[in-house]
Amino acid sequence: MEDPAARRARIVESRRLETGIDEAMIDRLVRAFYGKVRLDPMLGPVFEARVDDWEHHFELLGRFWSSVTLGTGAYSGTPMSKHIGLPVDGRHFDRWLTLFGETAIEICPPAAARLFLERAMRIAESLELAIAGDLKVVLGKGERLNRPEFDTEPA
C-alpha cells in the first residue's frame, strides 16, 4: 500500500504537470483577481468591510487554492464558516465568478484556467447554498439565492 504522503506528492506533481499550476501562478492569480474585486462596486465593499490585512489574506488564499487545485493540503481552515452571514446573494456569486474567470483566462494556460474555473464554480455553489441555508431559505435545483434588500431602484 502506498504511503499517504507519497501518494499526495504523486498526485500534486501529476496535477502540476497536467495544468502548469504552481504556487507562483496561484499567487499571481489571487493578487490580480482581488485587485479587480477591490475595485468592483458590488464586491469591493463586501471584502473591504471584512479584510483588514490583504497580504495575510493573499497568503491564506494561496494556500487555499493550492489545496483546492493541486491537492497539496496546504490549507487547513474553515472557509464555510467565514462566509456564513456575508451580505451577498446569487448576483454576488455571479460577479465573483465572472471576475475570477476573466482573471484565470488572463493569467493561466488553458488547462490551469479550466481547473481553477471548475473548482471556483463548485465553491461558489456550495457557499451560496450554505448562506441560503443559514438564512432559512431552501433552494431547489437550479434556484438561486435572491435577497430583495440588494435590489436596486430602477433609474
Rank of each mutant, 00 (worst) to 15 (best):
R15M: 12
L17W: 07
A49F: 05
R144N: 07
G20T: 04
A130L: 05
R7T: 10
P148F: 01
T19F: 08
F64D: 01
E2Q: 03
E2M: 06
T98K: 07
E13H: 13
A9M: 01
G85V: 07
M25G: 12
L86R: 14
F33R: 01
E106V: 06
G35P: 02
F150C: 01
V137A: 09
I11M: 13
S81R: 15
R7I: 06
N146D: 13
P79S: 07
M1V: 15
K36G: 05
E143F: 04
S66E: 13
H92M: 07
L99N: 03
R122T: 02
G142Y: 05
E23V: 05
F33L: 10
G73T: 08
V30W: 00
T103M: 09
P110K: 04
H56V: 11
E23N: 06
M25Q: 09
A124D: 13
A132R: 12
T69H: 06
E13L: 13
E102T: 11
L117F: 11
I21W: 10
A130H: 07
T98R: 13
E18L: 13
V88F: 08
G133W: 14
G133L: 14
I105W: 09
L139I: 14
R16C: 10
F33D: 00
M1I: 13
I21M: 11
A120V: 03
L145C: 05
I21Y: 10
L97Q: 04
W96Y: 14
R63H: 15
R63Y: 14
N146Q: 10
E23S: 11
R8A: 14
G85P: 12
Y75P: 02
S76P: 06
P109L: 02
A49R: 15
L39S: 15
W54Q: 06
W54R: 04
G142T: 05
A5L: 12
R147T: 01
W65C: 01
R7H: 08
F64L: 02
I131A: 11
D53E: 15
L115V: 15
A132I: 12
N146E: 11
